[in-house]
Design a protein around this nucleic acid. Sequence first.
DNA 1: CCGTTTTTAATGCAATTGCATCGATGTTGA
DNA 2: TCAACATCGATGCAATTGCATTAAAAACGG
Lengths: 149, 149
Amino acid sequence: MQEPVPEPSAAVIRAWGRLIRAERTVVGRIEAELKRAGFPSLHWYDVLLELKRGPEGRLTPREIEEAVLFEQYNLSRLLDRMEKEGLVCRIPFPGDKRRQLIEITEEGKALQWRMWSVYGAAINRFISAKLTDKEAGQLSALLLKLVQE
Amino acid sequence: MQEPVPEPSAAVIRAWGRLIRAERTVVGRIEAELKRAGFPSLHWYDVLLELKRGPEGRLTPREIEEAVLFEQYNLSRLLDRMEKEGLVCRIPFPGDKRRQLIEITEEGKALQWRMWSVYGAAINRFISAKLTDKEAGQLSALLLKLVQE
DNA sequence: CCGTTTTTAATGCAATTGCATCGATGTTGA
DNA sequence: TCAACATCGATGCAATTGCATTAAAAACGG
């Protein structure tokens, strides 16, 4: 027996549409700034930042994956590219030969730092200029509810 | 003279991170439902829905592009694929040989309809269950501010 | 202890996306 | 009117992503 699906409310549908479009718009604007400045994409930045925050600049791929929500196979290949650029290196995980540790290099830290000057300015321009801190707090709270179990 | 960039506030940075992650999470969940049901991706749905809403089920590629925020070249090729599946067809634009009209077919309308039963249910599960209508309204308002000039 | 299951990361191949540019029309302004 | 210039959509090619699967190592269960 097939239950008829109750229609989502107009308010919810509108919010969902806006979420997708807002994300696309702001990511697009910020990526454009990074590209104009000759930097790699936000994905690279995300990985660099997570690593920098990790203990001794190291995390396992799984930990990065969970933090940035990339697919395992995409992260694996992104790390290939980043390693080739000398931004990270792979080191063995003590006591478990399946795992590995990804370590950010000095060059990686330097890139993260240089990217932040552009990225931070873009955030100012495209987000801070549009929302007060109070509104940003409200937005955070709502988005948190959205992803919680 | 290089002005030092004022750091974005913690509240803004947090909201931005949550926006990206919430979008990734919810899109991921919804896409998984669609895939499980054997349907194409949300991008296809977005185009079908826009067309269905357009006058006589027709829009120019530019109009679709503006509505869904895809890149011109990506949309061009997405329409190729959709046309190949018989979901849309390209017809000449009267009075301007550069443009064209994309028209949704009956088959396209039918697919949109069938996808909605899964998509709507997923929205219920992943959004309505997490936010009240009032909260959805607040979220909409904040996201709108974010993208406005 | 050993067979089974789970976890972790990599990879071949197909599909999609990004980038740059093109060709065809339309539009504009001297 | 006609030479810029702008708009619209397509496309070659490279880069990235998605999908399915693999290999290796660890954890588990009897």
